[in-house]
């Protein structure tokens, strides 16, 4: 990482971070920072909100208004912040368990409101902080410490979930595709509405070891090999795509944003005041 970028946006005295060697989260965090830098946002007006888990430690290292909340609730706290002060750029950094299991209800309702929050899910397919239990994105059949005989749950397609719930911008990329993450986060922040970016990470410590996926570089290579850009799949059949990670901008639309709609209600009474 360029030292300049780090110095500008990191709380240097809080480093090194707590993530394991080979973890993909550091790359993802940098990609988010790059997006903020590209947009030239005023640091004082940026809030980064997280829940609990490995990904949720990210805000502590970042020099913004940062809020490390309770497990699963980042989007609910963030909704309060955005609603109370719509001038702030609110970015939620969360994980697969945090956003899709314990926080699933907040995810679908924040998406439904189309409130102007950009959510970046660092998806490592496992509960890392607690030591490797299966999560809503652990592929069916894979193992976790609480799925010793293989996971029988069907895993979530988070982007489809977010889009179905009303998110007006969704995209997916991986830690291997750092520049794409940056581009998607950047466009997500620019989108006036709820934006959802699934950022696939790697967890060699728990998910990788439990499922014999090799070391960090093997796992990164898998992200590279398994990914296919949404632009390139037009002529492919579903069968060809079964084991593929579809990356890129998946959905982008314009719909009324929540805090702007509320502002209209307030403005109705302005003349009376």
């Amino acid at each position: 990482m360029s030292n300049k970028l780090a110095k500008k946006y990191f709380r240097m005295d809080k480093l090194p971070h707590i993530w394991c060697p080979g973890c993909g989260h550091g790359i993802l965090m940098r990609s988010v920072i790059q997006a903020i830098d590209n947009l030239g946002l005023n640091k004082d007006k940026v809030c980064v909100v997280s829940g609990i888990g490995c990904s949720s430690r990210a805000p502590g290292y970042l020099d913004f208004n940062t809020l490390h909340t309770t497990h699963g609730r980042a989007l609910a706290f963030a909704t309060g912040i955005k609603m109370a002060n719509p001038d702030l750029h609110v970015i939620v950094v969360t994980g697969d368990g945090d956003s899709a299991a314990i926080g699933g209800n907040h995810l679908i309702h924040a998406a439904r409101r189309n409130i102007d929050i950009t959510t970046v899910v660092f998806n490592n397919n496992i509960y890392g902080m607690t030591g490797g239990q299966y999560s809503p994105t652990t592929p069916t059949g894979d193992k976790g410490t609480t799925a010793p005989y293989g996971n029988i749950d069907k895993n979530f397609d988070l982007c489809k979930l977010a889009k179905g719930a009303g998110s007006t911008y969704t995209g997916r990329a991986t830690a291997y595709h750092a520049n794409l993450i940056t581009k998607l986060v950047q466009k997500g922040i620019e989108n006036k509405g709820f934006s959802f970016i699934e950022a696939l990470s790697v967890c060699p410590t728990y998910y990788g070891r439990k499922n014999k996926k090799g070391d960090a570089s093997d796992m990164m290579k898998h992200l590279k090999d398994a990914s296919i850009n949404v632009k390139a799949i037009k002529n492919k059949t579903n069968e060809n795509l079964e084991d593929k990670i579809i990356i890129g901008e998946l959905y982008n639309s314009q719909e009324p944003e929540y805090t702007e709609q509320y502002k209209k209600i307030i403005n109705r009474f302005k003349k009376e005041r």
Binding site: L67, T70, A76, T79, G80, A84, L88, H106
Partner: peptide
């Protein structure tokens, strides 16, 4: 809204407590 204040009905009780705290953090 008549005073420029904000009201939001959240998706559940947990979320309303969280949003209350979020609001307070902005002053």
């Amino acid at each position: 809204p008549r005073f420029g204040g904000k009201f939001i009905q959240m998706e559940d009780e947990i979320a309303s407590m969280a949003a209350t705290i979020g609001g307070a953090l902005t002053g």
